[in-house]
Write a protein that binds this DNA or RNA. Structure first.
Lengths: 368, 368
DNA sequence: CTGAAAGCGCTAACAT
DNA sequence: ATGTTAGCGCTTTCAG
C-alpha cells in the first residue's frame, strides 16, 4: 500500500509534486510571506501525500532558533526540582518548545560543562538554578547577548537577568516566628549549600555569612536561597530577643555532609534544640531519620518544620507542617520570562517573586 | 582585553588563522581522516585563540547524528520516573549525549505527539515508557529503521525492539506471597492504567484482563506492567487456594480515578481487605491517605505493601515494606541498549530484566 | 597529507 | 505572488 521511501521527502520533492518552486513550497509550509490560496493548497496536499516533515536542523541553521530550552538544575530526583521541571516542560511544550535537561548536583564544574554543552546545542534560552549565586562568570558571558538566561529558585544579584524565586527570607522568618509563637527558643536550622567557591575571577556580589558548623563552611554561602533562609531565621530569632542566632545553625556542604549527621550532632548537644527547621524536603528526610533513630517523637519531644510541600509530608505521622512553594508555577513563570526575553531581546532584569504558603499540620507543638 | 566578536568563529576563520584549508581544519577539529601533527597543532591553537566552538547544527545536518536522546515518560514528578530519568541523563551524558524530556501523563495522544516532535528534532534514539503496550503503531513506524527505540519499564511484545523492565509478575507474586505468609487472605490490589485503547488499527498482542471495578476498566489493560503485576497477584492468590482472585482487585484509570477513592471503596466493603498492595508509590500515597482518613492503623488494622522504594517510605511510621526497583539502573541500562542499537544498527530484540528487592520494614503484620 | 569543490535542506533577499 | 539565486557551517568525495 504505502510507497517505498528510503529518503525522507524534502522541499524540492514537495515543490515538484505541487508544481511550484521551492520558495513557494517553503513559504506555504513555514507559513510566511505571501502565497496564493491555490498554491498553498496544492503544496499542503503534496506535503501530505509525501509525508513531508520539515528538517528542523536545516531550518534552525537558517533561522538561528531551535525551539529548544535548556534546563540546568541540581537533581531531578529532588521533588522540588521535579515539580519545577514539570512546570517548565508543560509551559515550554505549550509554547512549542522542547526541553533539554541537565543535573549538576550543585557542582559548579558540572554546571559550567552543562551550560557550555547546551549552548553548543544552540538552545534558544536557558533556565538555570545556579549552584552558586556569586560564581556566575559562565552565565554572565551568555547574558551578554549570546543566549538568554533566566535564574530559577536562586537570585544572583551580579547577573543582569531575570530571576524567579519565592521570598525565601520572608517565608523562613515566618516559619521560625511560628515556632517561636509556639513557645520555642532553641530552634535549629539545618541546611546544605553547593560546592565551595573555587576562587575564580568572578566580579560578583558579596555574601558574608559565617556559620558555626563543626568543620567546614568557613567561607561564604554560595546559594542565595540558603543565605536568605538563614537571614530570615536569624531575623526572626533576633526579633524574639534571641541573641546568639547561630548556636543551632548547621550549614552542611552538599556532597560532604549528611543532614542526618548534622541533626544527630544537634540532638546530642547539652541543651538540644526543641525545634528543627529543614530548608528542603530532602533535608527534612535526614532530620526525621535522625530524630527517629534517637527514639524522639514529633512533636511531643521535638517540633519539625520544613521547606517544600513534598507529597510524603502529608502521609507521615505526624503530618509535617511545611512552607509550600508553588513549584510548577515557578517553572512556568521562568519559561514565560525566558520566552519574553527570547522574543523581545535584551531588557532590564526583573526579579519575580512568587508567594509561599505555610501549611499548618501536626509537627509543631510547644516545647516540653 | 578580549577582542570584539559579534559573530562566532567558524571553520573558515580557524583555517585562515592557522594557514590551512577548511578541509584540513575540519579534519583536525573533528578528529578524523589524516592530518599532519604540525597542521593539527596549528589548527588547535587557532581554534583556541578564536574561541572556536563547532556548530553542532551544521555538523548534525551532515552526519545525521545529533547526540541527543529523547525520553518519553508519564510524569517526572513520579519518583520512579524521576529516578529512571536521572539514570538516563547520567548514562547519556557520560556517553556524550544530551536528553530531551517529554511527559505524557499516560496519555496516548500526548505520547504520539511527543514522539513525533522528538523525531522531528532528529534525536538519535528514543527511550519510551509507553502509555499503552498494545497501541504502539506510532513506535512500530520508527523501529523500522527510522529511529531506534528502547522500551522502559513496560514491554510491548508486538514491537521488535529492546525493553528494559523488572520481573513485574514475579515481584508482585512474591510480595503477595509474603502477605499470605503473614496470614492474610483478603488481599487487595490497587492499580492505575493509562488511557483507554482508542481502537486504532494496531496489530498488537492481546491482553485480556477484566477487572471488577465500579464502572470503568471493562477493556484490556493497556500497560504491561499493570497486567503483569495483576497476573502475579492472581497467581499468588490462586496458589494459596483463593479462588475469587478479583474480589479485591481495583483497577482505576490514570486521569479519571483517585487511588484514595478506590481504597475507600475497598474499606467500606462488608468484608474489607486486611492487606492492600499498591502498584506504585504514588498509589501508595493515596492508599495511606484513605487508610488514615478512616482512622485505621498500619499494620495493626491493615497491612500495606507497595511497589517502589520512594524516599518517604523510610520516614513514615510505620516504615513501609516495599518492592524496590533499581530505578537508576533501569534508565542506565535502557541508554546502554539504545546506544548499542544506534551504533550497531538493527538487531534482534532483547528483553533485559533487572532484579527487584523486597524490603521488609514495618507495614505488614498478621490480620486481626 | 592537503586543497578544491560539492552539497546537506532549508530560508531569505532580490528580482520578476 | 512567484521564481531565481545565494548561502547558513559543516563534512566529504575527489584530485593532486
Amino acid at each position: 500500500m504505502t510507497t517505498n521511501r528510503r529518503r525522507a521527502a524534502t522541499i524540492p520533492d514537495v515543490a515538484r509534486e505541487a508544481g511550484v518552486s521551492r520558495s513557494t513550497a517553503s513559504r506555504a509550509l513555514a507559513d510566511y510571506g505571501s502565497v496564493s490560496p491555490d498554491a498553498r493548497e496544492r503544496v499542503r496536499a503534496a506535503a501530505e501525500k509525501l509525508g513531508y516533515r520539515a528538517n528542523q536542523l536545516a531550518r534552525s541553521m537558517i533561522t538561528g532558533r531551535t525551539h529548544t530550552l535548556g534546563v540546568v538544575i541540581a537533581d531531578i530526583q529532588n521533588p522540588f526540582f521535579a515539580g519545577v521541571t514539570r512546570g517548565i516542560t508543560d509551559a515550554a511544550h505549550t509554547a512549542g518548545y522542547q526541553v533539554l535537561l541537565a543535573n549538576t548536583d550543585e557542582d559548579l564544574g558540572a554546571e559550567r560543562a552543562a551550560v557550555k554543552t547546551l549552548c553548543d546545542k544552540h538552545v534558544d534560552g536557558l533556565v538555570v538554578a545556579p549552584a552558586s549565586t556569586t560564581e556566575v562568570g559562565h552565565l554572565a558571558a551568555l547574558v551578554e547577548g549570546v543566549c538568554p538566561v533566566v535564574l530559577l529558585d536562586r537570585h544572583a544579584p551580579s547577573l543582569p537577568t531575570d530571576a524567579v524565586t519565592v521570598d525565601n527570607q520572608g517565608a523562613s522568618a515566618d516559619a521560625v516566628r511560628r515556632l517561636i509563637a509556639a513557645g520555642h527558643r532553641r530552634i535549629a536550622l539545618v541546611t546544605l549549600v553547593g560546592s565551595e567557591p573555587d576562587g575564580g575571577a568572578d566580579g560578583g556580589a558579596e555574601h558574608g555569612a559565617g556559620a558555626r558548623t563543626g568543620e567546614a563552611a568557613s567561607g561564604p554561602f554560595p546559594i542565595s536561597t540558603g543565605v536568605e533562609r538563614v537571614a530570615g531565621y536569624r531575623a526572626a530569632l533576633r526579633a524574639a530577643g534571641i541573641e546568639d542566632t547561630d548556636a543551632y545553625l548547621r550549614v552542611g556542604t552538599f556532597h560532604r555532609q549528611d543532614p542526618a549527621v548534622l541533626t544527630e550532632e544537634l540532638l546530642s548537644l547539652p541543651e538540644p534544640p526543641t525545634a528543627v527547621f529543614a530548608t528542603d524536603s530532602m533535608i527534612a528526610l535526614g532530620v526525621l531519620s535522625a530524630v527517629n533513630a534517637r527514639g524522639l517523637r514529633v512533636p511531643e519531644d521535638i517540633s519539625v518544620v520544613a521547606f517544600d510541600d513534598a507529597e510524603w509530608t502529608r502521609v507521615v505521622r505526624p503530618r509535617l507542617s511545611v512552607v509550600a512553594q508553588p513549584v510548577q508555577e515557578l517553572g512556568a513563570e521562568a519559561v514565560r520570562a525566558l520566552l519574553t526575553r527570547i522574543e523581545r531581546g535584551a531588557r532590564p532584569p526583573r526579579h519575580i517573586t512568587l508567594d509561599t504558603t505555610f501549611i499548618t499540620r501536626d509537627s509543631v507543638a510547644p516545647p516540653r
